[in-house]
Design a protein around this nucleic acid. Sequence first.
DNA 1: GTCTATATTAAGATAGAC
DNA 2: GTCTATCTTAATATAGAC
Lengths: 206, 206
Amino acid sequence: MTRLSFRQKVHLAREDAIVGTVKRLLAEKGFDLMTVDEVAAEVGIAKASLYKHFPSKEALAAAAMVQMMDQALEQVQTQEAQPGATAIDKLKGITRWTLQTQLAGAMPTLPAENSSLRNALIAHKGYMDGLMELSDQLGAWIVQAQADGTVNRALPPEAVLYTIFARACDPVLGFLKAGGSHSDAQIVDWVMLTCFDGLAGRPAVT
Amino acid sequence: MTRLSFRQKVHLAREDAIVGTVKRLLAEKGFDLMTVDEVAAEVGIAKASLYKHFPSKEALAAAAMVQMMDQALEQVQTQEAQPGATAIDKLKGITRWTLQTQLAGAMPTLPAENSSLRNALIAHKGYMDGLMELSDQLGAWIVQAQADGTVNRALPPEAVLYTIFARACDPVLGFLKAGGSHSDAQIVDWVMLTCFDGLAGRPAVT
DNA sequence: GTCTATATTAAGATAGAC
DNA sequence: GTCTATCTTAATATAGAC
């Protein structure tokens, strides 16, 4: 770890505050509807100052996505650290964390379409590295769970991976929450159930 | 049915062409990234002419969404017309149609966030009526399927309904298609499997 | 690095002739 | 109803003083 000057620490702390705000706004409104003016206002600095830290709106969003990816990788470590956890337990653990995070309004979701953000992210080494590592880690769990017979062997591992990734932007959570008559924990339980056991709902192998 | 003059027929035909183009562009890029200039160019008329037919971009998109809703209701009738079909068969039928339509790039998907389109749609009687009717029809099938034991009784019917609706914008289809190594039919089968039987994958009650 | 003020551009919408 | 030309606004980005 490199020793940092006080000035550098302040600089990083400010950038962290910026990225935190961006992450929240991205989760709330998405990339296209989030404006740089808004970010600057919420952070409490001038827009021009923002552009001294990040060269573009895409870079701003990319920084937030990288931080999100790092959080996800941290969660992977948390799952890995559970002593008796099987592969399916870990998959369920990371999926539950994803749902909880989204429901809490803290999951910045990439626009599914061909937005300018998509290209920026594909060109962003930090983001792509994180994505690869996350895919590898989950991929290993998936293969193991299929060997255990706890994940359907008829599905290609990539389909399982994408299905779990997609929980980060599952609109069902928001729909159920909008109803207003269920607790967050209850909503997460239901979506976990549909995800792993399906609508037809036979109990899973354990 | 009211008798229409030739002029009126031409008018309606043109509006149909416009709505068709909008539907495709909405499916491709979403509401925010679709521009009115683009719509006009693809239809082959001037932008100002477009605004003689529809008063705003939101109205344009709403017309496309209403047409989509009508197509869905038609599909409901098709399912209802199957002689031996049980409730779960019908639910699977409409879900499969939804997946196929999205995969074919013909499913305009509403932006999940608080876009201007959302408010326009909520204020749009034709759209909301269609949505209510669709919800009622699927709701009846869901309740019946739960009574039959073919849909998990632990799930509230609204959760099942939202889960089926959400297939219209499931990103897993696009992810798998981007890989390029699977047929559309194969992709649809896998997503159907995860939707109804879950990742854990026990065969459903039939 | 922070600010105020401004440039630039893209896109929704309209004016007015035919 | 169709067109060309124009208006208006909002949002990304930058200039330049301190």
